[in-house]
Amino acid sequence: MNHLAVYDMDKTITYSPTWTRFLVETARVESPWRLGLLPVVALAGAAYALRLIGRARLKEIAQRLLLGRRIPEPVAERAAQRFAGRIDDSGVCAGARRQIAADREAGYRLVMATASYGFYAEAIAARLGFDAVIATGVVRTDGMIHAKIAGENCYGPAKLRMIEAWLAEQGIARRESYVRFYSDHASDAPALEWADVGIAVNPHPPLRAMAEVRGWSIEDWVR
C-alpha cells in the first residue's frame, strides 16, 4: 500500500499567498523599474475579478509585467532560492511543520500540489522535505523561462487531473494507495473528495461550510 500525503501550498502550508509576493520581491532585486508596472498588474487583477480574463491568463500577464517576457533560468533559480529562504524563515505555519513531520514519521510520501509555478514552489518544497511537487509549469526554451503556462494551471479540477497523471507516471495505482489531502480552499474540493481523508486547513468560509457538510476534518495551522 502506498501512503501519500498531498498538500496544497498557499495559505495551507504558508501564512499567505506567495505568487504576487514572489513577483514583487524578485522585481525589486532584479528589475526595480518594473515595480512601476504594479498599477497595470492591478488592472489585470480587476479584469480577472470581472471575469474578463481567466486565472491562468492573469498569472501570465503579471509575470510578463514584473519579470519580463522571459527570464534566464539561472536568474529564476537564484530568485527562487532567495524567496524560498524567506518563506522557510518566517512564512510557514507552525501547524504545517508539525503535520509534515508527523506524516513523514508515519511513512507517508510527501507531495506538494499547488497552483503556484513549479520553478519556485520546488525550492520551497525542498526546504520542507517534500518528495515530489505537482505544480503549474512554464514554457522553457534555450535556457529561458517564458511568461507562458505550459499545460494546465494546477487549480481546481485541473489539480486533480495533474495528481492522477503524476500517479500514472510514477506507476502508482490509486486502488493500492491511501491518500491524505490538505487544503485551505474550496477550489480543491475535487481532490478533497477523491482522497481517502480530506482535511480542510485554515479554511476560508466556503470550504469550512463544505467540510462541515461532508464530514472533512477542520484544522487550524496558523495558531
Rank of each mutant, 00 (worst) to 15 (best):
N2I: 00
L4Y: 14
L4I: 07
V6Q: 05
D8F: 15
D10P: 04
K11I: 03
K11Y: 03
K11W: 04
T14C: 00
T14R: 00
Y15N: 10
S16H: 05
S16K: 06
P17Y: 05
T18A: 11
W19M: 07
R21K: 11
R21G: 08
F22I: 07
L23V: 01
L23C: 01
L23Q: 03
V24K: 14
A27N: 11
A27M: 13
A27T: 03
R28I: 01
E30Y: 08
W33F: 12
W33E: 14
R34A: 10
L37G: 14
L38K: 09
L38Q: 11
P39H: 05
V40D: 15
L43H: 12
A46D: 02
A49N: 10
A49E: 13
L50N: 09
R51Q: 08
R55I: 00
R55T: 03
E60Q: 01
I61N: 06
A62S: 11
A62T: 09
Q63P: 01
L66I: 02
L67V: 00
G68A: 04
I71P: 04
I71D: 12
A76W: 11
A76Y: 08
E77Y: 07
A79H: 10
A80V: 03
A80Y: 06
Q81M: 04
R82D: 12
G85W: 06
I87Y: 10
D88V: 00
D88P: 00
D88A: 08
D89M: 07
D89L: 05
G91H: 02
V92C: 09
C93W: 04
G95Q: 12
R98C: 11
I100M: 14
A101T: 15
A102F: 02
R104T: 00
G107S: 05
Y108E: 08
Y108C: 00
Y108L: 00
L110F: 02
L110Q: 05
V111Q: 06
M112S: 01
S116V: 15
Y117T: 01
Y117P: 00
Y117L: 04
F119K: 05
F119W: 13
F119Q: 12
Y120R: 08
Y120H: 06
A121V: 09
A123D: 08
A123W: 02
I124E: 06
I124V: 10
A125Y: 12
A125T: 11
R127C: 03
L128M: 06
D131M: 05
A132R: 10
I134L: 05
G137V: 00
G137Y: 02
V138P: 07
R140K: 13
I145F: 12
I145E: 12
I145M: 12
I145V: 04
A147W: 07
I149H: 05
I149M: 09
G151H: 09
N153L: 04
A158N: 13
I163G: 02
E164C: 11
W166P: 00
L167N: 08
A168I: 11
Q170L: 06
G171F: 11
I172Y: 09
A173N: 03
A173V: 15
R174W: 14
R174T: 15
V179I: 13
R180D: 09
Y182W: 09
A186V: 14
S187K: 14
A191R: 13
L192A: 08
A195N: 08
V197R: 01
A200L: 15
N202S: 04
P203Y: 08
P205G: 04
R208E: 09
M210Q: 07
G215Q: 01
W216N: 02
S217F: 03
I218T: 07
I218L: 15
D220I: 07
